[in-house]
């Protein structure tokens, strides 16, 4: 490409620097501090863009390395792509993906529901409720998830029966923990309780970010308390909650692989079983990786649109969606032709 030589105008000094760093086409209009030609009007000075030789060299090196890596992925027989493709949509793998999704959804829904209760307790005016919520978060953030999971898995060993009745008094209704806590429910309980501690803090942060004047206005209008929460506070809190919540869901989604220690047939456990049988470790790890990537990508897309929904009213003119942007682009292409 030919370097452009723009003529400096007074506004060129604060012109936006082109984000395309590799091209080196930044139009920087800095005087070198020399006093020569001070009398010339700046509009007549020529601007020579800075040349970033090292940046170009680094860019080239990265490109070469990336190409090499991609080439290796395709041509190195050790990746065993035919094994990958045989297993990536195999029934046992799909079933395992389904289990992983279930664990994620249950963990997220229950975790955030309990997290909401904890966050509200923490923000309530009752020091007792706030203290309990604080202690919960403290405890469940301190205990490693895997320890907690194994604990739930072995609950039957600690308490053989759980029952409902008068506190410290007679039990009205009871059931054996053996039936209550199977491996799957132990996993869901463990993930949800762990998730709740983090969700509580994320939601609390969201509530704190809502301007206090909003609650005051709602109170002055006499809007009932629950309604204030649902209609005024939550939607505004969602803006700061969502990015963090999405992070949590993604890390829970991948974190479900930890329940493989409980012999639950989720994705990671399943590929371990398969490569234990046939010894094809690398392609099967790639199978799991591919599914984790695909589903995380889907979640990111959902996140984008949900965030957009809750941003309504925040900007004077909301930015177009990628789809709208693409349509506008093709329209201009057609018109210019």
């Amino acid at each position: 490409m030919t370097p452009t030589t723009p003529v400096a105008t007074p506004s060129a000094t604060d012109a936006k620097v082109d984000s395309d760093a590799e091209s080196g086409a930044n139009s920087v209009a800095e005087s070198d501090g020399d006093s020569a030609g001070d009398s010339d009007a700046p509009a007549e000075l020529r601007v020579v863009p800075a040349r970033h030789y090292w940046r170009w060299a680094a860019g080239a090196a990265v490109l070469v390395l990336t190409a090499q890596f991609a080439h290796g992925l395709v041509t190195n027989p050790a990746w065993e792509w035919e094994v990958f493709f045989r297993y990536v949509t195999a029934d046992s793998v799909l079933r395992a993906v389904w289990v992983t999704l279930q664990l994620t959804v249950y963990g997220t829904v229950l975790g955030f529901a309990l997290g909401l209760v904890l966050a509200l307790m923490r923000l309530s005016r009752s020091p007792l409720l706030a203290g309990v919520a604080w202690a919960y978060v403290w405890a469940f953030r301190s205990i490693p998830l895997i320890v907690q999971l194994l604990f739930w898995f072995n609950l039957a060993y600690l308490y053989e029966e759980l029952g409902v009745g008068i506190p410290f008094g007679p039990v009205v209704w009871s059931f054996g923990t053996m039936h209550l806590v199977g491996a799957m429910s132990a996993a869901v309980i463990g993930l949800a309780l762990h998730q709740a501690a983090y969700a509580a803090e994320i939601l609390r942060g969201g509530f704190l970010a809502v301007e206090p004047g909003q609650l005051e206005a709602a109170a002055a209008l006499g809007i009932p308390r629950l309604r204030q929460l649902r209609r005024i506070v939550l939607p505004q809190a969602m803006r700061s909650v969502l990015p963090n919540a999405a992070n949590e869901i993604v890390s829970l989604f991948k974190g479900t692989s930890i329940v493989s220690v409980m012999a639950i047939g989720e994705l990671f456990y399943q590929v371990q079983v398969i490569y234990g049988r046939n010894g094809r470790v690398v392609p099967l790890l790639m199978v799991a990786t591919a599914w984790y990537i695909v589903l995380t990508t889907l979640l990111s897309v959902v996140q984008y649109y949900v965030e957009r929904h809750f941003a309504r009213g925040a900007d004077r003119t909301p930015p177009p969606t990628p789809l709208q942007r693409a349509r506008a682009f093709t329209r201009t292409l057609k018109e210019t032709r």
Binding site: Q214, A219, A220, L221, G222, R225, Q236, G313, A314
Partner: peptide, 23 residues
């Protein structure tokens, strides 16, 4: 609080910085 909120509906309040609900 519920009764206070009910009585407040009889009193309109206009704030210095509006406090409209932006969403």
């Amino acid at each position: 609080e519920r009764e206070i909120l009910r009585r407040r509906t009889r009193i309109g309040f206009v704030f210095q910085n509006f406090n409209l609900f932006p969403h």
